[in-house]
Design a protein around this nucleic acid. Structure first.
Lengths: 106, 106
DNA sequence: ACGCCGCACTTGTTTTTTGCAAGTATCCGC
DNA sequence: GCGGATACTTGCAAAAAACAAGTGCGGCGT
């Protein structure tokens, strides 16, 4: 079964996961930054970060004392293309989403 | 707000949504086909198809009597790139995803 | 004509996921 | 040693998903 998409979604398909990765594409960030930027509930954020770390998408880098940063691994960075592609698609989606279904103007 | 990704995910971010679209990239298919190919619960499938239709991603084409097919619209087809990108990423994901940080195997 | 089957769904009900609010632990500066 | 910042837990309610069974409709065989 070549269902690579299902494999991908089992890692980054959960809610907020891709948004977290997108945010980290701009560089490593701390927990509180992600929280404030994305507006993600704190327990969900903690859960996702754990999952994504275990999946090898990101890793914790300890900073000073009780602060640390989350940074994408190579595998995480490899999501950029997919995220950009989805983002582009989302652009057009935002325009008008009234049922403008034109496929064959007769 | 350049959060196009969030806009995209609000449409195709729900569980099974992208898999349904992927399946339809191979051409129009019927309800039962999607169900059997993907193994998606029937009530979820019905819900997603309704949502995706309302979002202009796909449309119903009536076939004979009480059968119909689901086909992607142009907007739905435009998801191909994103799906391919995610699929490619998922390929590599499949290799080994043990959370072995740096455990020397030998 | 009538029952039966396949197709495309609904309609309960349970389980899982998400969200919200509040609390805990640790360190740092004062 | 107190207050505030940072990084999370924990408890509980709401929402979504999965499971199981049922409905309506049309065609087909008999």
């Amino acid at each position: 079964m070549s269902d690579d998409l299902a494999a991908a979604l089992s890692v980054v398909g959960a809610r907020w996961a891709l948004l977290i990765v997108e945010q980290l594409l701009d560089g490593p960030q701390r927990y509180g930054d992600l929280q404030r930027e994305l507006g993600v509930p704190t327990n969900i954020l903690a859960t996702r970060l754990r999952e994504l770390e275990e999946a090898g998408v990101l890793r914790r880098l300890p900073l000073r004392h009780n602060t640390r940063a989350y940074a994408l691994t190579d595998r995480g960075l490899a999501l950029r293309e997919a995220i950009v592609a989805l983002g582009r698609w989302g652009e057009d989606q935002g325009k008008d989403h009234d049922q403008a279904q034109n496929q064959d103007p007769s």
